[in-house]
Design a binder for these strands. Structure first.
Lengths: 104, 104
DNA sequence: CACAAGTATATCAAATATGATATAAATGAT
DNA sequence: ATCATTTATATCATATTTGATATACTTGTG
């Protein structure tokens, strides 16, 4: 993992630590993070096509800041919220499954 | 939704309420529950093929009771834990995506 | 430039999910 | 039927995730 990518994850709150510490992440932990980031990216794409973060937040009964965090892959956002957000944009289980299946 | 199915969900802690209250669940809420239940079922199937709940709990750094709840579709279990558990059984993102895509 | 709309960041109290522990119930082998 | 293994249920203190709020930053438009 290059330094730039490491810093990017750290800035989002992922406990990546140093490069050598990163090597201690199990494949499962790495995959989980990748799934979250894939959902984040996809959420942002979908949402931008039809509404603002504030509008999505309303549908979700959440808040604009939380949607921003979700879209930016912040570590404090659960997969659960990411999926609820995807559904609120109109995504189907098929589409969500696709996004996850693409990881790896 | 028939009465038997309703009771089943209530027993697991889902706030389904009466049948008429159930009708107030949005399609998104319903889909989210269905995704969780699909992951639960699949987790149980996968896990049973190769290990006990206690063994999976160790890999997960969780506990046997929590694995039991995960496999039984308990409402207190997050999608996050379900996915971590799937990964711990050796499931790939492809397989997890499949399970979710099958919902609906 | 000014101004508005949208997005990002910080903080925090409340809600929810967590692993641990104890223990009960179920399952299955002898 | 006994006994060991496995699974389910109950409780709980701790940790994480949450929506809310305030506010800063960015972007685009007049």
């Amino acid at each position: 993992m290059d330094e730039a990518k490491r810093k990017k994850l750290e800035d989002k709150g992922w406990k990546v630590g140093t490069v050598s510490e990163f090597l201690d992440l199990t494949p499962e932990e790495t995959t989980l993070i990748e799934i979250k980031l894939a959902l984040s990216r996809n959420l942002k794409e979908r949402r931008q096509k039809s509404m603002t973060q504030a509008e999505l937040a309303d549908k979700l009964h959440s808040s604009q800041p939380r949607v921003a965090k979700a879209e930016n892959g912040d570590a404090s956002v659960s997969i659960e919220l990411l999926i609820r957000a995807m559904l609120a944009t109109g995504a189907t289980p098929q589409e969500i499954g696709q996004v996850i299946a693409q990881v790896g």
